[in-house]
């Protein structure tokens, strides 16, 4: 099932009062691919992300997600935590780590969030609770290893550098055992060498963990190096779709986006 769709977005429109944030947007995301959404500021990229993860509810259109179990579900109208439990993980544009917790605890929260709650279990700590806890610990350590933060496991998350916070967010998102990872400008605010490492890491997430990736990014070099397919948004509408080569040659894109942002985007 190479071409199976994870996300099938059909003609969604999202409005805030009179402002149309997404206008008749359609998008298909295949399992196992690295897909990027680019576009100038205010084009609606993050609105699209928020619609896919249940934070915003588009007024029109359909978003179908093929869940971990294989059945298709409609995302619109679903709460964000429900979408997460169906295997959709995300990071945020401004990193939203839990600063007062340690790096390890940050990841652990992700790892254990999908178990049933059980106040009694939490207080009595029976064998099942302890077993679950051990599993979460192992997964958290494994993921910290994976993103290269193992040595910083016991530091406060707020003491991490910007690049490390990005890695931590990725590890925390992966801890929810997702099938697809949505990255909202992962390279924002990182320096060139961190950017390079991040590119490697994102590719590794797909290749070694089998997690499909949907990426919003301003940095053209990173997008072109990483993405296999791109969608270009402008003023809430999709204006182009294709491989990096096709996008580079697309007249409409050059006019709307690359012409204005290629100099600014590389900063």
């Amino acid at each position: 099932m190479i071409d199976e769709l994870i996300f099938n977005v059909e003609n969604i429109t999202l409005r805030f009062g009179g402002v149309v944030s997404l206008n008749n947007v359609s998008l298909e995301m295949r399992r196992g691919e690295i897909l990027a959404v680019i576009g100038p500021n205010g084009a609606g990229k993050t609105s699209l992300f928020n619609s896919l993860t249940g934070v915003y509810q588009p007024q029109e259109g359909r978003i179908t997600l093929s869940a971990k179990s294989g059945r298709s579900v409609s995302v619109i109208g679903m709460k964000a935590h429900r979408v997460s439990s169906l295997g959709v993980a995300r990071t945020f544009q401004a990193s939203r780590i839990f600063g007062a917790l340690t790096t390890f605890e940050n990841v652990k929260i992700g790892a254990e969030s999908h178990r049933g709650i059980g106040i009694a279990g939490a207080m009595v700590r029976g064998p099942r609770t302890r077993h679950g806890e051990r599993e979460s610990d192992e997964l958290a350590v494994d993921l910290l290893d994976f993103v290269g933060l193992r040595s910083k496991a016991n530091l406060l998350a707020s003491s991490l550098s910007y690049g490390d916070r990005r890695r931590l967010e990725i590890a925390r998102a992966l801890a929810t055992r997702p099938q697809v990872l949505l990255l909202d400008e992962p390279a924002a605010g990182t320096n060139p060498s961190e950017k390079l490492e991040l590119t490697e890491l994102i590719r590794k997430v797909r290749d070694e963990r089998g997690v499909s990736i949907l990426l919003i990014e301003h940095d053209m070099k990173l997008v072109m190096a990483l993405a296999e397919r791109l969608y270009v948004l402008n003023f809430g509408s999709v204006i182009a779709e294709g491989t990096p080569e096709e996008i580079r040659a697309n007249e409409a894109v050059i006019e709307a986006y690359l012409g204005a942002a290629s100099t600014a985007g590389d900063s």
């Binding site: 997460s84 993980a89 939203r96 969030s113 998102a173």
Partner: peptide, 9 residues
Amino acid sequence: VAAESLGIN
């Protein structure tokens, strides 16, 4: 917001 994105209700 971040907590909810991790599946916490």
